[in-house]
Amino acid sequence: MKVEDLKAYIETGILELYVLGDVTPDEKRQVEEMASKHPEVKAELDEIELSMELYAKENAVEPSEDLRGRILGSLLTNFGDDRNFTAAPPHNESDTYEEEEEEQGNAIVAMPVRKESNFYKYAFAASLALLIASAVAIFNLNNKLQDSNSQLIALQQSKQQFANQVNLMDKELTVFRDTSYKLIRLKGTPKNPASAITLAFSPGKKKVVLDIADMKMAQNDKAHQYQLWALVGGKPVDLGVFDSASDTTASIKEMKSIASADAFAVTLEPRGGSVNPTLDQMVVIGKY
């Protein structure tokens, strides 16, 4: 018999009914044959019997001391009455008839004691065992579903990050391959001689892109940001703000659009940028 067939046979509930004694002779013989031929059935049968025995022991109800004393006292009294019983002396027929009538009048009829059935106890034990097993299975399944959902969310986030990185790299390659862009190297001012940054400017597309990954500028604090300016006819035009390379994972950054410029410069401004550049905070500058 296949493993699937054995599993299906076990799940029919015939083994629990066998342990409870609620099977026909044919079903009993079939269960015993299956248990002798298949170790899996025998193991499941033993486990069910053990579970029911343990449940019966754990849920056994001890009688109270008062009830125990009354029962023992009644038994001792009955035993004493039996031992003190002596044969009655012979009587004549009339006396015997009268005594029989008196005995019949005073006789106490003993009601048959109904034997308590263990069927419902074992049935409840089996149901409780199945309920506990189902609860454990549902709990484990719920944990597995939560783990799967967490893994799926992490995978989606990783996929999105990878897609963003690919798009960024594709944009970077487009800038470097597009001949309409001109690379301009902005060099440090006398106050910041070690600073430098490269930008790509396409007048035809009105685009300005900063090379953030290769920039050499001091890290700005949380209260300040770098601001890019285009000098057009001697007047500064705001092209947006950006942070130092250590504060961003992007390798390039597209700034605000502009069609023409004579030069570009970067100043350090309060976070969010300024309307006009702070000239004494100029970091780099370069002509187009």
Rank of each mutant, 00 (worst) to 15 (best):
A154L: 01
S64W: 04
K205P: 07
P112C: 14
K144E: 11
I252V: 13
D221C: 11
D26F: 01
R70K: 13
N167I: 04
A259F: 09
Q30K: 06
L20W: 00
I153S: 11
N167P: 07
V3L: 04
P90M: 09
A245Q: 10
K37T: 07
S260D: 14
F124G: 12
A230E: 04
G105T: 12
L279I: 15
Y122R: 14
E49L: 10
I197V: 08
V113H: 11
K187N: 11
A56R: 00
M215F: 01
A88Y: 03
D178F: 03
G273Q: 09
K235Y: 01
F119D: 13
E44H: 06
L54W: 02
S74Y: 01
H224K: 01
R114C: 14
I258E: 13
L141H: 06
S117C: 01
S94K: 11
M34Y: 00
S244L: 02
H224W: 00
A265P: 14
V275L: 13
I212T: 03
Y9S: 03
A60I: 07
P89R: 07
R185A: 12
E33T: 07
P203D: 00
R271H: 13
N92E: 04
K206C: 00
L54A: 03
D280R: 13
D82T: 15
Q160W: 08
R29W: 01
L145F: 01
E116D: 10
L15S: 02
V31D: 01
Q219T: 11
V283I: 05
L45K: 08
A154K: 02
